[in-house]
Design a binder for these strands. Structure first.
Lengths: 151, 151
DNA sequence: CGTGAAAACTACACAGC
DNA sequence: GCTGTGTAGTTTTCACG
């Protein structure tokens, strides 16, 4: 599905603040209710627009530790991968996980209440799957965090 | 502000899908409209609930490259930091930025349309601020990505 | 602190342009 | 493809238990 300039503007608004009414969004993009609504519906159907969520404040909820975990493994069989993937999906502390190209095989972003909670997570993970090398980078300060794509 | 069990349940629902009506959420947490609405309002005021946004699908919008950028710097003066922070905030490709403890000073998550677009970003960044060493990790596959905290 | 109803607003569908 | 109107449903307020 192709996206035009108006769709782009709508997306920019929605990924900034989706809590406003159709009217407000329509005004912001210089159009009116019905066309905007039809475009949003189409983008939803096409899967361009995913779920609508609230972003909770991690600090205020006591999630004061955030780690980036760099993982090297020696095992590259399908079965190991399947188990590893399952473990990541099941653990709610894992906010983000990517398979990488190059030296390092995986990167995870893990949010926990404190350093001890990270250790609990870490011990649980390595008992479930064999990994060759793990490096944890501790975040001191979150300088920026957005889901808004640079459309 | 303290959060009780009901607030926790509401947050779990909202960070999963905030697109539903109050009625549905109230039913899901085993309460009714007014109390749920009052709790949501309080959490909003307290900043526990941040903005409500839609999550666009990066792939479908042509953002096929995602890099994690590990940055070491030799400069640690306040002025350098201010400039660096400003550069990160202004560049929409930077989805996420953390200041780290340890060897590596910063990690960025950068989403771009392709590898060439990453190079444009990289050249622009190093021309704005001096950095000592930069390592880019290319994501091959996004295995998981959520904003939902493990409440 | 919860219930229920009233008022204002919003989403969604559709006829006409 | 846009404008405007109508209706069903939703949010938000409030008086009361």
């Amino acid at each position: 599905m192709a996206i035009d300039e108006t769709d782009r503007k709508i997306l920019l608004e929605l990924q900034e603040d989706a809590g406003r009414s159709l009217d407000e969004i329509a005004r912001a993009v210089g159009s009116s209710k019905t066309p905007v609504w039809n475009r949003i519906r189409k983008m939803r159907e096409a899967g361009i627009i995913g779920p609508q969520v609230v972003i909770p404040d991690p600090e205020k909820l006591g999630f004061e530790a955030c780690f980036f975990v760099l993982i090297r493994t020696s095992e590259h069989e399908a079965d190991w991968q399947r188990k590893f993937l399952k473990a990541l999906r099941e653990r709610p502390e894992v906010m983000e996980a990517h398979r990488l190209a190059g030296e390092i095989d995986y990167i995870l972003k893990v949010r926990v209440k404190n350093a001890r909670a990270y250790d609990v997570f870490y011990q649980a993970l390595i008992s479930e799957v064999k990994v060759y090398n793990v490096t944890a980078l501790l975040s001191m300060e979150e300088l920026k965090n957005t889901n808004a794509l640079p459309l």
